[in-house]
Design a protein around this nucleic acid. Structure first.
Lengths: 254, 254
DNA sequence: TTACACGTTTCCGCTGCGTAAAGGTCAACC
DNA sequence: GGTTGACCTTTACGCAGCGGAAACGTGTAA
């Protein structure tokens, strides 16, 4: 079986541009070029492409994929381990970034105490003109807090604690909801408390609260199977009940 | 106080190229241009740059930073929340990537059973021609495994379990080490067992084992304060003891 | 005057393609 | 034989955030 760019592309789920690019950088050359200059691929190329796409899915760069697939005696496991290290490093950086963003949001929303605010100012400065940024950053990240400036660490931990509080809040809502569902009445005191908690939870995620949007979201919990699955995880019918409670809750707001 | 590009750059820790680029994209314009065409910055620009760099450290794009800093009534908290969502999405993708890479390494190293290997073949195929990749990927990732193909989930879980075993291995080494340190003898049976566990732990991370490299690393545990801090976390002197045990261990290998 | 340490603009390069533009080729249909 | 439309080709710009180099002007101290 022989394939032109479009056929191979359709088979493997990549664009023709991608195939031409892979040819250009020498990653996947066609089996031959026909008299009209068309690229013609064979079965061997199909297999090679599968392999290439597999590594691509793992986030390996095309340059490295080339090394891996071009020489059969290349140690691909070693390459993957090296690749994993890079990914882990990226993960650590990303985690740190998220913590910093969380801390900044909390600070900006005024949920910090004054003394924490002061620390935050220091943290901000530190973040910007961190002159020892490069020196051993990977190792410090990897092997922990020992070397991290103490006040910064406190701040970050605080932001984490706040985040945990948020998850606790969601948990509490679930608990209340489970109780409320026993009464069968979404307008009951307890169900309305759950709806209020849901609003509080939302406020941390949303840029600004709006009751119509809240109501719409509640409806989506029922309409979208994936959301329903999430809320019905503990008990079936929870999503519907929560929606009703929220609709009542939002309607009651003037 | 007035600054030229290089002075401001030195002050804030950025290159002159960066400052020129920020001028070019309209992110930070100099206060004025002098008669020779030099960019001249004032105190106001210093503050603005600090702010810009702060957001840059949080991983915000220059385009968004421009919006945030240019209009004072812009809702920066909302922007940061949006930014956080992007980061969280990236984090989920990265986590999945790492799991897949781990699974691949385990498979390639032959640590999988045959039946798991078969699953892995399916996993590989799935990974490459995942046609429903786009549909609701975020929500699926976010709200869990309900929709994830069962056999794949088993595979990933297995790879995670294997990874946990690795951490258990390190923990075991620490326990042994604590015991061994009581004897005070790094050549004792128990200390040598700890060194052996350390080697096993290493083998998962290293592309290939080599006793000289092992010995060198052990020495570094003592020389580099950050490593020392990690190993001495539970008990001071652990790093030195571990080094001695490893030096004896590697020396004994023919 | 000469050296050299600054400043300037302009442009290429990095990754992995997407998206034109401008043009040949192949099969089918009139 | 002409036309249409679905293919194919190459060339090249764009994306983010600069790094680095080339080619040239300026300020100042020896």
């Amino acid at each position: 079986m022989e394939y032109t760019v479009q056929k191979l592309g359709a088979l493997a789920g990549v664009s023709t541009r991608t195939l031409r690019y892979y040819d250009e950088i020498g990653l996947l050359k066609p089996a031959r070029i026909n008299s009209s200059g068309y690229r013609i691929y064979g079965e061997k190329e199909v297999d090679a492409l599968q392999q290439i796409l597999f590594y691509r899915e793992l986030g390996v760069s095309l340059e490295e994929i080339k090394e891996i697939v071009s020489s059969p005696d290349f140690d691909s496991v070693a390459a993957l381990k090296e690749h994993r290290e890079k990914l882990l490093e990226k993960q650590r950086q990303l985690d740190q970034l998220i913590k910093n963003v969380n801390a900044t949001i909390l600070s900006a929303e005024g949920r910090m105490t004054m003394s924490d605010q002061e620390k935050f100012e220091g943290f901000k400065k530190k973040l910007v003109d961190d002159n020892e940024k490069k020196y051993g950053a990977e190792i410090r990240e990897k092997y922990g807090d020992a070397a991290i400036d103490e006040s910064n660490r406190k701040l970050i931990n605080m932001s984490e604690k706040n985040y945990e509080q948020l998850q606790a809040l969601e948990q509490k809502m679930f608990t209340l909801l489970a109780e409320a569902i026993e009464t069968g009445d979404p307008s009951s005191e307890i169900a309305q408390q759950a709806a209020d908690l849901h609003k509080k939870w939302l406020c941390f995620h949303w840029k600004e609260y709006n009751k119509d949007a809240h109501a719409n979201l509640a409806q989506m919990y029922v309409d979208d199977k994936r959301f329903t699955a999430y809320y019905d995880k503990q008990k079936k019918g929870t999503a519907v009940f929560l929606r009703d409670a929220i609709l009542i809750y939002t309607a009651k707001q003037q």
